[in-house]
Design a protein around this nucleic acid. Structure first.
Lengths: 198, 198, 198, 198
DNA sequence: AATGAATGAGTCTTCATTCAT
DNA sequence: AATGAATGAAGACTCATTCAT
């Protein structure tokens, strides 16, 4: 479908050139249509880019949610480790979306920045909710703030992984992945005491 | 000096709008000169931006080097903790340079990307050299690969801090800073065995 | 009927934006159809506008003719006064058509200008013929050129009324209407001598 | 000077094609520069047209004021007759400005319409003030409302002349001019009684 | 050291129009 | 009778850059 192809080309061009650097002409060229035709599907450039962004963010959410649901019943160490793994996997295999995401985060277009910041907030809420439940059910003795701290460490390590994907080659990320997992396990073990977390 | 003012305006505009989004006209406006005047000091747009980038990277290097030299003689835990602290301090108090840096890393302009990648490599070599020396002198029993592993963990945690500065408010970074320090200390303690590192 | 609705929307848009400023898209929007659908009824933009113009001019002619026939048998003063009244009434209650008319008169589209100039000429001939007959029958002693002069004064005062409708509010036109009538009566009385005009 | 030439070309194009029909490219062509160069002198299209309009209106005011001052000391009949003469002379010898003026009066661009409406109001105030003084000084027995009525008749007849310039050829306007003068004199004589107005 | 004037190339966008359905 | 999809041409405007002064 033409509309989808336009979105995909927009993501590619956004990642490569940024919002201002990307041009309707180049996007059209990649879809093998004329620039004017884009305006049949999208109101204007900003609108097109916002819709492209929504696709990227939904894709990210779907990916993380899928992983979470798949490993929900495993032990905590596994859940965290698999989530780390998915962060790296998702972003390395969707490098353009990831680069676009980095550009969006500080976009000069308020609507774009807003869109991403909102997503980040929503995603965070979801993540905290899900993880809180899994941690609490496995460790009834932990209070809310202790649980929140564990999650915060997880998120912090996830940030390290994310930025790694941006500056390192895909192949180098295995090392980072192992580091994140090690540090998280180490922290978990200490934090949960000597008990097993099941 | 006009030339410096142009560089500073360029950094601000680069951070805000990216390379393509930044315009000679706006930069000139901020310096209270006419666009044509910029060409007295800089060959062209690309050249101007490359020189601005050099200023940013040198500034970063100076900052990190300063911290390193200041705490070089302290114990390892302190060195790492102070370096983390400086990462956060430098980037939060130079947000525009930091945002510009994020844009440069994947710039569509090869010369810009190259410039940053080269710096990153150089900086890394310097960091590894310095840290290797300090770690080795304090832990003669560690072999090269063990030392390298410690440094890698440090860098990984530094990446988490860096990305945090981009997406969180300045005030939230203290939590991240503590997390990085904790994890590093924990790792160091385990990695260096039960011995003191002095 | 769709075709009529298109014509009406065209008149509205012509009045508001002029020929070049009016767009097929906006016209279609006002009729709740798609631009492509207009082409089922009209060959192209110019054709559509010419047909809209014809509607405006026919409407004007019908209006003036109606008034003339209604008061044909009255005394001259009344005929002129009622015609003035109708000029004001017709144009104030069809402001869009009137504004469109003003734009047409000097349109850059030769076909449009032509259409209106032809109408103006035809209308003038009709008016002169009708008025000549009525004046002559009531004043057998007047020769052709004397009659023509009376008509010319009437037309001149009508022009003043017409332009008044364009630049003044509807409410202000009563004053103008009275002025035209006064001046015409005054002129008629002097021109026809002290005799009654019946 | 380039800027002036642009203004003149703008007036010509505005008169011929209207605001939307006139294009920066055509204007530039007539001045033998490139469209981009216009933007060195004028912020944008609207701004350019507003400045062109100001030139037209100032020109009109200068013209009317000049005539008024020249004949100020003559008897009333002469003043009115010369003002009529100047209305016709000014508008026939500046047909493009006059046509532009007609388009402005109902422009879809609020700023343009506003500009002209403001001028019309200001001009009217000036005219009424000047004429009031001259009429009053020559006819001390007239009260304000009687004076105002005379002026209103003058303005009404002026409107008829103005619209005549738009729809008739220059050569036909002599007849209109004579009609306006006759009607005004006739009205003046009746209005001022049988007395001389000096 | 700075700029007024100018421009070619390119930006996003709108427009009238077409044509298969 | 109507439209979804598409486009060539043109619109206003911006941009980096030049060059004489």
């Amino acid at each position: 479908m033409t509309k989808d192809k336009i979105i995909q080309a927009t993501i590619r061009n956004f990642a490569k050139y940024g919002y201002e650097g990307a041009s309707m002409r180049k996007i059209a060229e990649e879809v093998n249509i004329k620039p004017a035709s884009i305006y049949y599907f999208f109101e204007n450039k900003q609108n097109l880019f916002i819709q492209a962004i929504k696709v990227i963010l939904e894709h990210h959410f779907t990916s993380m949610k899928g992983t979470f649901e798949q490993y929900q019943t495993e032990k905590l160490h596994t859940i965290f480790s698999e989530l780390f793994d998915n962060i790296v996997r998702h972003h390395t295999s969707n490098q353009e979306e990831t680069k676009a995401y980095v550009l969006m985060v500080n976009s000069a277009i308020p609507e774009i920045k807003e869109e991403v910041r909102n997503y980040l907030a929503t995603y965070n809420v979801w993540l905290v909710e899900q993880l809180t439940e899994e941690i609490a059910s496995r460790n009834p003795h932990l209070d809310t703030s202790e649980i929140k701290e564990i999650i915060d460490y997880f998120i912090f390590l996830g940030n390290g992984l994310f930025w790694g994907v941006i500056i390192y080659e895909k192949s180098e990320m295995q090392k980072n992945l192992k580091q994140a997992t090690n540090l998280m396990n180490q922290y978990l073990n200490q934090s949960l005491g000597s008990e097993k977390d099941e």
